[in-house]
Design a protein around this nucleic acid. Structure first.
Length: 433
DNA sequence: AAGGATGATTGTAT
DNA sequence: ATACAATCATCCTT
């Protein structure tokens, strides 16, 4: 207590010059002399300055005493004013943190892998999707990838547990800090905004920790993936039935073998693939490969084409008993463009096939269906008319879809018909086959 | 084991 | 973004 005056001197001088303090001091020390006031202030300051040296209990007691001190409101006001003058207003604080792209990426990936996001359902769906990517079509793939799924769900579980832990810790810490600040706000000025800011700082810190968790989870998933699934070249062939379904579609839409998304889904469903994303890829792959390989070597596929064409055509003609149509050598142009085919002619045929196929494509793609009948007819014609001659047969098809350079894309324009005499030379190899 | 068949991937063009 | 073309990697038949 001997050094009190010195302390008083060093700190008190400035304070004494403070108008606010002077004012409050007057309030608080009504009737006492200047020495008493100085004594008071020095005492308070001394206590504050040394409070950190105290043991916890002592400090607590001292704190309480200070809180109850009669000079406390005055000191508090002074602090408020000082702060108002000196504190850098928290303007820079409200940088609404833009969503971290890195974090977004991680989130998206975790979501995609089925680690984050909806519970079991979504997770297993993603797992199944991944599994189906390697698994065969319409074949059992569950056994092979149960291990993968188990590991994935393990990761998922760890991730969620950890996340929960972090969240809990974050909340705990936040409330702790908030309580602390609130309590402190009794002795020193703390605006709610500052508390808010502190909270957001805490959250940011914790979310950066979370990001690490997400990152390592992603890594784990990637490793798992690469170990199990990235042997995706370990392909499984489509089973026979699936291939037939796809072929059926392909050859009955030969003029435009580009199934729409809906058609692909339908096909996938028929083939026994149910997983949405992968499904379309598989079907797309199949059609991509098929188109390119068919075009590359029509001859090689001639037999197959005829088979499928005959199959659908025969069933169609059987029902509708319009044999004349199949026999009539309709000019290629009549059906060449998808837009200009004869509706009245193929309409009933379409109907009959529709009923025959048994609701397979009830969807409203009437045009496509009719077109398919036209394709089918074409094959029948080619079969009955010029089958023996490979070249002739290929001429039957090619005007429809394939021009030597472009492929199917501009197929519907019949004007692009060119005799493919030197195009796929392998047509001849077909006959030899 | 060889070689063809076939699903998947990659690079390119539109 | 989609299709094509080339290519890879595996499956399957011989």
């Amino acid at each position: 207590m001997d050094e009190q005056p010195r302390l008083m001197h060093s700190h008190g001088v400035g304070m004494a010059g403070h108008p606010g303090l002077a004012q409050h001091m007057q309030d608080g020390t009504a009737g006492t002399d200047g020495e008493g006031r100085k004594q008071d202030i020095g005492d308070i300051l001394q206590q504050i300055m040394t409070i950190t040296d105290q043991s916890l209990d002592e400090a607590q007691a001292r704190k309480h005493a200070l809180n109850c001190h009669r000079m406390k409101p005055a000191l508090f006001n002074v602090l408020c004013e000082i702060k108002e003058k000196t504190v850098l207003s928290i303007r820079g604080a409200q940088e609404e943190e833009p969503p971290d792209p890195q974090l977004m990426r991680l989130d998206n990936m975790l979501l995609a892998e089925g680690v984050a996001g909806p519970e079991k359902g979504g997770g297993s769906a993603a797992a199944a999707a991944a599994a189906a990517a390697t698994g065969g079509i319409g074949a059992d793939n569950s056994a092979e990838h149960s291990d993968y799924r188990a590991k994935l769900s393990q990761i998922r579980q760890i991730y969620h547990t950890e996340l929960e832990k972090y969240e809990q810790a974050c909340n705990e810490f936040t409330t702790h800090v908030m309580n602390l600040l609130r309590e402190q706000s009794r002795t020193r000025p703390i605006s709610p905004k500052e508390i808010e800011r502190m909270v957001s700082i805490i959250h940011r810190k914790f979310s950066s920790i979370q990001m690490q968790l997400k990152q390592s989870t992603c890594e784990a998933v990637m490793i798992l993936r690469s170990r199990f699934l990235d042997a995706r070249r370990k392909r499984r062939n489509f089973n026979k039935q699936a291939t037939e379904i796809l072929n059926e579609y392909f050859y009955s839409h030969l003029s435009n073998p580009y199934p729409s998304e809906e058609a692909k889904e339908e096909l996938a469903k028929k083939c026994g693939i149910t997983v949405a994303q992968v499904t379309l890829t598989l079907v797309s792959n199949w059609f991509g490969n098929k188109r390119i390989r068919y075009k590359k070597n029509i001859g090689k596929f001639q037999e197959e084409a005829n088979m499928y064409a005959a199959r659908t055509a025969v069933s169609a003609t059987n029902v509708s008993a319009h044999g004349s149509q199949a026999n009539s050598p309709s000019t290629p142009n009549s059906a060449g463009s998808a837009g200009s085919f004869n509706m009245s002619n193929s309409g009933d045929l379409f109907m009959s096939v529709q009923s025959l196929n048994g609701d397979s494509y009830q969807g409203g793609q009437v045009g496509a269906n009719i077109q398919s009948q036209v394709d089918t007819l074409r094959h029948v014609i080619s079969q009955t008319g010029g089958y023996s001659d490979g070249l002739a047969a290929s001429q039957m098809y090619s005007p429809q879809g394939i021009n030597t350079n472009g492929g199917w894309q501009d197929a519907p324009t019949p004007s692009s018909v060119t005799s493919p005499t030197e195009g796929p030379g392998s047509v001849h190899s077909d006959t030899s086959n």
